[in-house]
Amino acid sequence: MGAGHTHPMYVHGHSPVHHLAPEVKIAVSVLFTIVVVATPRELLPAFGAYAVIVAVLAVLARIPAGWLARRSLIELPFVATAVLLPFFAAGPRTDVLGLSVAVEGLWAGWNILVKGTLGVLIALLLAGTTPARDVLVGLDRLRTPQAITQIALFMLRYLDVLADEARRMRIARLSRLDDPRFLWQLRGFAAGLGTLFLRAFERGERVFLAMRSRGYTGRLPAALHEGSVATARQWAVGAAVPALAVMVLLTDRFLV
């Protein structure tokens, strides 16, 4: 239990980005992503500038480039199919390296590729510098309704419990010579799902009772994390990132 599954994406560190209050980082990520998505796909220099901003943030956060690359690879299959679009779109065609591709498809593929990748990188920077629980604290401070943060808190807690119970049940099964191969496991897996669910629930229910016993009323007490509340300065620093992105967008759109 509690073997640390709740921070699978967190890169431990003490960079300025790590120390930024979570609510600032969430707001910045959301705004920055919106600016990226709102950028017309023809403004190539703007996307270059966004990539530079992301790179600078990654360096500031001391997130290794290798980690970012590996993590974004997980998303690759979903974005990479965009590469096929030029071959399948209708409309005027052009020749690239001797292949006939649709101009429109080329742009469409590029659009998905660049916005998808930038979006993933921004989200990875947030996740890499902010433990999951702090993201919830940030959401709470951004006035997210308590019902949502409470469900999210329990969800993260239960992910541990589920993984833990699943591991124990699997070990119990393997020690009785169950075949561990995937398709052979499906039957036992499906049959065990309901049991897993109940076991996890009853364990989690005890956790909840223990929390209630110590006066829990639906939100983590603010006193536990008052050290990290965003200062006006942090908000100002954070706001600079989307502001910079907007400036890039406007400059590119109207001046170039």
Partner: peptide, 21 residues
């Protein structure tokens, strides 16, 4: 394990009294 759920011992011990205000 049913009782302790926060990342550090100090935070977990603080959970109850913090709920008391």
């Amino acid at each position: 394990d049913d009782q302790l759920f926060l990342p550090t011992v100090a935070e977990d011990v603080a959970f109850g009294p913090a709920n008391l205000g």
